[in-house]
Design a binder for these strands. Structure first.
Length: 450
RNA sequence: GUGAUUGUAGCUCAGCCGGUUAGAGCGCUAGAUUGUGGAUCUAGAGGUCGUGGGUUCGAGCCCCAUCUUUCACCCCA
C-alpha cells in the first residue's frame, strides 16, 4: 500500500507549522487587539446552506459529502434514476462568510450587535490546484455585522495595515465600491451587464486594453457603451484625481455618487493612520467577489519585487443583507479575510520568516538506563517548572544515536547523568555548538539555560 | 470545465536509438571510536521504474486509459 493524500492537500511538518502558526498568531493578535471575538463553525454544513450562495461556478466547486451507509441501494433496487439530492445532503464549507451568516441568524438572540467576530478555519474548494491554489486552505476572517458605519471599513483596513506591518510584507491595499461600479453600468446604459463589465475591466493589468475591449464586445456591450467606458478604464493619477473624474462621469447616477461619497469618507478617515495612508489605492478595476458585496470592496496585493505573487492575499468588503437569505433581513455586514496559505508562500519567497530556533527543546537528557532515566525525571520536572523546554531520550540507545538525535533537532544542550553524577548530585552538561562540557549544580544549570 | 506538464531508492535526480544484472549524490544502518554529535573513511540495507492494459523476440523508454505533480485559462484566497 503506497501512502498518498488527496489532490490539492498538504501535510504540514514541524518546521512548517512553526511558520504557519506565526502567521495565525499574528493575525489573531491583531483581531483581538481590535476587540473581535473568535467563533468556530463545523467543517460541514447542510447543502441547502451552501448551494446557490457562490454563483454557478461556486456550486460546481462544492465538495459534497455522500450520505452514510449505502445511499444508492434503494434507488438501485427500485431501478430509479439517482439525483444528487437523493444521496448527498451535506457539504464541506466553501468559505467562512456564509457559515457566519447562518450562525448569526441561528444565534441572533444571544448576540449583542454590532457583533465583531473572527474565525480562523480551513475551507474546501474542488478547484484545480495551481500556484497559490489548494483544495484545502485556511481563511482568517474578521467581520462586523449589525452596523452600517463606515468606521468599520476604516477599522478593518487599519487591521490589514497592522497585520502586514507585523509580518513585514510590503503591500498595496486596493479599494473600490460596488455602488461606483453599479453607477458606471447605469450611466453607460448596461445596467444588467455589471458583472461582465467588471470582470473584463479586472483583467486590464493582465491582458491589456485592446483585449479588454474585445471581451466587452464579446459579452454583448454596444460600441457606444464601450466608448463611454474608455475614460473610466484608463482612470489614473492620485486618488483625488480619480475621484474627481468619476464624479464627472457619474453625475447623473444617484447610486454612483453615493459610492463616491462612501469612498471619500473612508479615504479621509484613513488619512489619520500613518501606517496605511500611503498604501491605499482607489482601483476601479477591482471586481472580485461581486456575488454579495454591496458597498466597499477591498483587496490586497503584494508590493515586493522578490515575490512572484500577483493574486490577492487578502480581500473583503461590505455586504448588505447577507443574512436575508436565512430569514433575517436588513442586517449589514463588512469583513475581511486573509489567505494564510498564500501569505505563507509570499513570506517563503521574500524570506520573511523570523528565526524560530528559540522555541524548540533547550536541553536533552541522555538515557543511560532505567535507574538513570528515573533520576532524570525529577530533574526534568524542576527544569520545566521554569518554562524551559526539556526532554529525555526515551530509549537507553547508544550514545552516538542519542547525540545524533540532539544534533538533528538542533538542541543546544545535552545533559549526561550516569552513576557518577547521581552519586554526587551533579549534572554533566555539554554545549553542543562549542563541544565544551562541565559539571554543574541544578541552580547553575537553570541559570545557564535562561 | 479547457490546454499543457510531471511521476525511476526515504529525498533530489541520471538512465543514450527499445537490448543482458536499472545507477549517482544525500539520507539510513553498522563499523573505524567500550560515556560523546557534526567532519572523514569502510561496508551494508533499500526498486512491482505511479497504476492498469497494449505493441514487440525484448519496454523505465513506444501506444491507450487512469491516478498524481506543476503551470496557464475560467474562476478565485
Amino acid at each position: 500500500m503506497k501512502p498518498s493524500i488527496p489532490k490539492g492537500t498538504r501535510d504540514f511538518s514541524p518546521g512548517e507549522m512553526l511558520k504557519r502558526n506565526y502567521i495565525f498568531d499574528t493575525i489573531r493578535g491583531v483581531y483581538q487587539r481590535y476587540g473581535y471575538e473568535e467563533i468556530e463553525t463545523p467543517s460541514m454544513e447542510n447543502l441547502s446552506m451552501l448551494e446557490g450562495k457562490y454563483g454557478e461556478e461556486g456550486d460546481k466547486l462544492l465538495f459534497r459529502i455522500l450520505n452514510s451507509g449505502d445511499p444508492f441501494e434503494k434507488y438501485r433496487l427500485a431501478h430509479l434514476e439517482i439525483k444528487n439530492s437523493d444521496v448527498t445532503e451535506k457539504g464541506l464549507r466553501y468559505d467562512l462568510t456564509v457559515p457566519f451568516a447562518r450562525y448569526v441568524v441561528m444565534h441572533q438572540n444571544e448576540i449583542t450587535f454590532p457583533f465583531k467576530r473572527y474565525q480562523i478555519q480551513p475551507v474546501w474548494r474542488a478547484d484545480r490546484p495551481q500556484k497559490g491554489r489548494y483544495r484545502e486552505f485556511y481563511q482568517c476572517d474578521a467581520d462586523v455585522i449589525g452596523s452600517i458605519s463606515l468606521l468599520n471599513e476604516v477599522e478593518l483596513i487599519r487591521m490589514i495595515g497592522d497585520v502586514f506591518d507585523a509580518l513585514k510584507i510590503d503591500v498595496s491595499i486596493k479599494l473600490n465600491n460596488r455602488k461606483i461600479l453599479s453607477g458606471i453600468a447605469e450611466v453607460i446604459g448596461e445596467r444588467d451587464k455589471i458583472i461582465d463589465i467588471t470582470v473584463a475591466i479586472d483583467k486590464l493589468d493582465k491582458i491589456g486594453l485592446d483585449k479588454v475591449n474585445e471581451e466587452l464586445k464579446m459579452k454583448g456591450l454596444s460600441e457606444t457603451a464601450i466608448q463611454q467606458l474608455q475614460p473610466i478604464i484608463k482612470l489614473s493619477g492620485s486618488n483625488e484625481n480619480k475621484m474627481e473624474s468619476l464624479r464627472q462621469v457619474l453625475k447623473n447616477s444617484e447610486t454612483g455618487l453615493k459610492g463616491i461619497a462612501e469612498m471619500e469618507s473612508i479615504l479621509n478617515m484613513l488619512q489619520i493612520s500613518q501606517k496605511v495612508k500611503d498604501n491605499i489605492e482607489l482601483d476601479i478595476t477591482l471586481a472580485r467577489g461581486l456575488n454579495y458585496y454591496t458597498g466597499a470592496i477591498i483587496e490586497v496585493k503584494v508590493n515586493d519585487k522578490r515575490s512572484s505573487f500577483t493574486s490577492s492575499i487578502c480581500g473583503g468588503g461590505r455586504y448588505d443583507d447577507l443574512t436575508g437569505i436565512f430569514g433575517l433581513p436588513n442586517v449589514s455586514g463588512v469583513g475581511i479575510s486573509f489567505g494564510a496559505d498564500r501569505i505563507y508562500d509570499v513570506l517563503e519567497e521574500v524570506k520573511g520568516f523570523p528565526d524560530f530556533s528559540g522555541i524548540s527543546t533547550k536541553i536533552l537528557f541522555v538515557n543511560f538506563g532505567e535507574e538513570e532515566a528515573r533520576f532524570c525525571l525529577q530533574l526534568l520536572d524542576r527544569i520545566r517548572e521554569d518554562g524551559i523546554h526539556a526532554e529525555l531520550y526515551p530509549d537507553a540507545a547508544k550514545m552516538k544515536k542519542q547525540m545524533s538525535y540532539a544534533d538533528a533537532k538542533k538542541i543546544p544542550f545535552v545533559a549526561l547523568i550516569g552513576t557518577e553524577e547521581m552519586k554526587n548530585n551533579e549534572i554533566t552538561v555539554k554545549n553542543m555548538s562549542s563541544g565544551e562540557q562541565s559539571k554543574v549544580t541544578m541552580d547553575e544549570l537553570l541559570h545557564l539555560l535562561k
